[in-house]
Design a protein around this nucleic acid. Structure first.
Lengths: 160, 160
DNA sequence: GCTGAAAATCTAAGTGATAAGATAACTACG
DNA sequence: CGTAGTTATCTTATCACTTAGATTTTCAGC
């Protein structure tokens, strides 16, 4: 069934192109403040949820275990977040916004949302809802399958 | 209207997560053959369209001008593609599959399509069509806007 | 035909991540 | 308790690109 193969391939291509087109806007916006999309995601998550464990943030923004250390290092060196000890588990650490980080995310978030809305203006409100529904179903399945046969994104497995 | 902001933000987050979940499958598959997704994209484009100018391939797979040189270098050193002169424009060069490249893409493409179909099995056929339609509209608009206010992806602008 | 701007590719240096493995701490079970 | 296995983070090396700018060629207008 070449017919179905084409459909899948087309979906993958258009998903990829659309993601990159939108990501370019998000990226261009946060770059104005010297941030990457991943860094912005961390600040936003902390702003929204308060202090989180490194591992929680990692799963939230989907980076590798080394990646989250690296990103938090960078944000820490910019004075935007700080690490805190976790009394219940001394392996783990919290990340929390500093006052500077809190101020920054408060300041830049509204404009970011505005630009995002602009970048996403190709669909009306109902279409957005439908797109969210379809993308959710697609992503959910893909993520489930990943757990089975694709390389894991976490770390720290030691054998013998 | 926090209500609309949330919708846009949600769409962006789910687009990003879904893209990454699906991309992980594509990546895991081509990695088995020592290729990146971008390299596979080049081979596939050449297989489908025959020899292309570097710039055409660049626009097709959405990398920077430096990136396409780098990628073609790598594929060339693997013996999968070759550069050819362009008689009509001596600045430009064609990229073409070598017999080895042709053989490789023929060999791995069907399995790639099969795995992609598996990764995309969260939607039925009609939903895929609808998703393609929505993503097209979204991506088209985002790409148009990019041309106005976001950093360009091309190269070679020299000023005084 | 010149001349200056624009286009196609390439090169060099830099960057945001990833992967693999190390370290340290927790947990469960005999 | 002690030991094996698991979990959380960090470190080091590497990588797949990007950005900026250099080079060569084309083209438009004079």
């Amino acid at each position: 069934m070449t017919h179905e193969i084409d459909l899948n391939l087309k979906l993958w291509v258009v998903l990829s192109r659309t993601y990159h087109a939108v990501a370019a806007h998000a990226q261009a916006d946060v770059a104005r403040h010297g941030l990457t999309v991943a860094e912005f995601g961390i600040l936003e998550a902390l702003h929204h949820k308060g202090p989180m464990l490194l591992g929680e943030v990692q799963r939230k923004i989907l980076v590798s275990s080394g990646g989250i250390s690296y990103l938090v290092d960078r944000l820490e060196s910019k004075g935007l977040v700080e690490r805190r000890e976790c009394p219940e588990d001394r392996r783990a650490r919290y990340v929390a916004l500093t006052p500077e980080g809190e101020a920054l995310i408060r300041r830049i978030f509204p404009e970011h949302a505005r630009r995002l809305a602009h970048a996403l203006s190709g669909l009306d409100e109902d279409e957005k809802r439908e797109a969210i529904r379809l993308l959710r179903a697609l992503g959910k399945r893909a993520a489930e399958l990943e757990a089975d046969d694709a390389p894991r994104r976490a770390a720290g497995t030691s054998s013998p």
